[in-house]
Amino acid sequence: MLRLHYNLEKVSMGLVAAIMVAASIGGIVEIAPLFTIDETVTLPDDLRPHTPLELAGREIYVREGCYACHSQMVRSLADELDRYGPYSLAAESAYDHPMLWGSKRTGPDLARLGEKYSDAWHVAHLRDPRAVVPASIMPAYPWLGRPLDTRLLEAQLATLARLGVPYDDAMIANAEADALAQSRPASDGAAAVVARYGERIAMRAFDGDAERLTEMDAVVAYLQSLGTLTNAPYQIIGGGEQ
């Protein structure tokens, strides 16, 4: 090997080629199978994608860098099951571009957060965390009360559909209307949202004000959806309904 290298270091393109080969093998062996094996590609029948409103909330979660302090990946360790709930399955984030598993828990894991708290709790907490949890070091997000910009939603759903997320043409075409309707359960469009995304989605004025569609509506809708996109983890681990 030393001899080989001795000759190689006289030929720059040879060195380049050898580096590329040596540095590719590990990645290929570890990554390529993940696109084929059952463990990582089978999806539960009841898995649904995010609604447009939840997706908008997810985009805000990304924008504000919530993932820097919160993981969304319950590991298969006893204390995590006791603290957070059933461990996370690969399938749960199958439609997530990108995944938000996170790497740091300055705050708690959020994978099983959906419906743990009331909407009002979240609204108060996001506006001023220390008003609700005095020792909290989470930043306040007072600006989330501003109107939600829904103009990109249709294009976002279309892009995700192209990447394989099961949004059909009607979902894409109605993305903006559906976002509004999800926060106005009494409105005309509400029934169509349920028809498209299923009975299990939450239909509420998440920020407590049905008149205005705000970023707060979107974030809270997203937080309340965490861990509820499929029932599979509860069936495998908890032995039944949530």
């Binding site: 990645g27 570890e30 990554i31 993940l34 696109f35 990582t40 985009e59 690969a90 399938a91 749960e92 984030s93 199958a94 439609y95 997530d96 571009h97 990108p98 995944m99 598993w101 990109l152 294009a155 976002q156 892009t159 995700l160 192209r162 990447l163 394989g164 997320v165």
Partner: peptide
């Protein structure tokens, strides 16, 4: 990644879920 539109600073990575996690940490 696939840009949402050519006129916006917004895109979705083509990877998702567990494959995305592996590629991200690779």
């Amino acid at each position: 990644a696939l840009p949402v539109s050519l006129g916006a600073a917004d895109s979705f990575t083509i990877w998702s879920g567990v494959q995305d996690a592996m590629i991200q940490w690779w």
